[in-house]
Nucleic acid binder design. Sequence first.
DNA 1: CAACCTATATTGGTCATACCAATAGTTGCC
DNA 2: GGCAACTATTGGTATGACCAATATAGGTTG
Lengths: 236, 236
Amino acid sequence: MKLPLKPIKPKRISDQVFDQLTELIARGELKPGDKLMPERELSAVLGVSRTTIRNAINKLVVLGFLDHKQGQGTFVRLPDVRDNNPLAIAMQTEDATLEDLLEVRMGLECNAAALAARRAVEEDIHFLEKSLEEMKAEVASDRLGTEADVSFHMAVSYATKNPVQVRIMREFYDFLFYGINENLARLYEKPERIEEILFQHTQIIHAIKKHDPDEAYEAMERHIIYVLNFFKNQDL
Amino acid sequence: MKLPLKPIKPKRISDQVFDQLTELIARGELKPGDKLMPERELSAVLGVSRTTIRNAINKLVVLGFLDHKQGQGTFVRLPDVRDNNPLAIAMQTEDATLEDLLEVRMGLECNAAALAARRAVEEDIHFLEKSLEEMKAEVASDRLGTEADVSFHMAVSYATKNPVQVRIMREFYDFLFYGINENLARLYEKPERIEEILFQHTQIIHAIKKHDPDEAYEAMERHIIYVLNFFKNQDL
DNA sequence: CAACCTATATTGGTCATACCAATAGTTGCC
DNA sequence: GGCAACTATTGGTATGACCAATATAGGTTG
């Protein structure tokens, strides 16, 4: 008899720390380039020994998420889009277009939105709304809202409570964000488009908040179709 | 001018230990299944602290060459096909379940089916039907139909004419097929389930042939829900 | 005798503390 | 102003102790 239950095994403490750090990075609370808290401080804050903290951090270093710099600190590494990212390989090897990417995202993200609507808890909603505010702030201060945009979509993924979903989405956004920013940037040039996108995001959050999977699905669908159409008209 | 020279920097001690262990494994002095010297002993032999030894070993564990077993020792892991597969890494690192995988497939494949219905040409239909026949044949000859099943789903992906879709799907099936065949196999045990699956595949093909995206979407949805439910009930 | 429990040894996991080593920023001398 | 030495910060290593899981051996019990 195979169980879907989370194994009871109390995980190693270092792995629990690892999970927390991973989550921070996945959610975008720690963005590439950010400096981590010193190990001694982390140790104090979390109430575990520095040894354990180091084990967790080392794991992330090996996996390529962090970089050690002796005498300076530990930093979130910008994902090496060229090597590990299957999407980047696909885009180079085959000749995939931005449109192809968006098509696949359509399936992934609509489904994710529906799942999120079913499972999101308060904390998830909080993160969603936070990323919305951040995006407004970024735009207001005359920067592109791309970073917060990524945070938003990752927050949706995270709300699904599905690690595979998070993993796949991460691949997409690592690529979109650090790979072909230039193309994506064009979408954010006009204020009226940003306005529209913000509105769409709001609708998605609303649906998730209401725990209405169908509405969340459709709201996400409208959003991605909007972006998709933008790029379709772009190159004619 | 890029040099092939080794950087002069004297490496971290833990990395030197790491290199030695790696070499032992690479040379085959340590074969899969072998037990490593206890950390304390290694520490004594190499004349470095156990801390350092552990750092080196942990690195190898993360990279998948070694396995920790508390109370027993550290063992050389038998290399696994799924090592290069990002999904496999996710399944290990996070604790993703088969259900998580299927949920994500739900989004990906339903969308793919709809796209396929729009774009499939004669050749694509041909491959779809071929994989269906192959599956029947495999089952008739008393083998599991898993291989042909994979072929079918990949054929749907190909019909989308979307390289990104193909790439992502490939990842999934590389993993499903080589990774957790055992679990998947249970689905194919009972003839009546195979019958049902074959019927569902037929419906999907039919919808794609008719170029009816909505019907294809729903047919695929029914199929995956069926499989999903099977695994959900499996472990109660 | 077989099965089961228990004590003990082995071994990885965690903790605490101290010190080494690289780096950045500051100070002070010329 | 510019260079050199000092200092604070932070990752890297060293010890030594103890915790936690596992295996093994030995004794107890049916």
